[in-house]
């Protein structure tokens, strides 16, 4: 049997809105993935440390305070500095469409915004994982 996909659901920054992160975490778990939730108010350094230590395949970042343009790129940068390769970084929250391209350039592969069904996130992660295996 295939091994389980390991996902870190992370809340960087100072906002306490964890409804979305927890709903996504529950949905990924129900879809058979191994989910680690960081809890709130994490620093970029703390998230990178958790991602490395837990040896995850995917990091899902959630920010609803508007600080995504600073925090998301910082986390990707720190992951690269830590020598991490082939990890999928995705994000979600109140993130205006105009910011998506910039975040992609910085290494956040995909941004999910309000109204995105959890099944879409599950499918996205699964198909990325399949593709990675075949490479």
């Amino acid at each position: 049997m295939d091994r389980k996909i390991r996902v870190l659901v992370a809340k960087p920054g100072l906002d306490g809105h964890d409804r979305g992160a927890k709903v996504v975490a529950s949905a990924l778990r129900d879809a058979g993935m191994e989910v680690i939730y960081t809890g709130l108010h994490q620093t970029p350094e703390g998230i990178v440390e958790a991602a490395v230590q837990e040896d995850v395949d995917v990091v899902g970042l959630s920010v609803l305070s508007g600080a995504h343009m600073t925090l998301f790129p910082r986390i990707v940068e720190l992951l690269r500095e830590a020598g991490v390769e082939g990890m999928l970084i995705i994000g979600g929250g109140i993130i205006p469409a105009d910011d998506h391209e910039f975040l992609r350039e910085k290494g956040v592969e995909k941004v999910f915004t309000p109204g995105a069904p959890t099944s879409e996130i599950v499918d996205y992660i699964r198909s990325w994982f399949e593709k990675r295996k075949t490479v």
Partner: peptide, 23 residues
């Protein structure tokens, strides 16, 4: 108030980076 004010950090604190005046 913005998140740093809500969480008790001054605007020049490291934890406030990117959050000042945002929400």
């Amino acid at each position: 108030f913005d998140m740093p004010t809500i969480m008790g950090f001054d605007s020049d604190h490291a934890r406030s980076l990117g959050e000042v005046g945002k929400c």
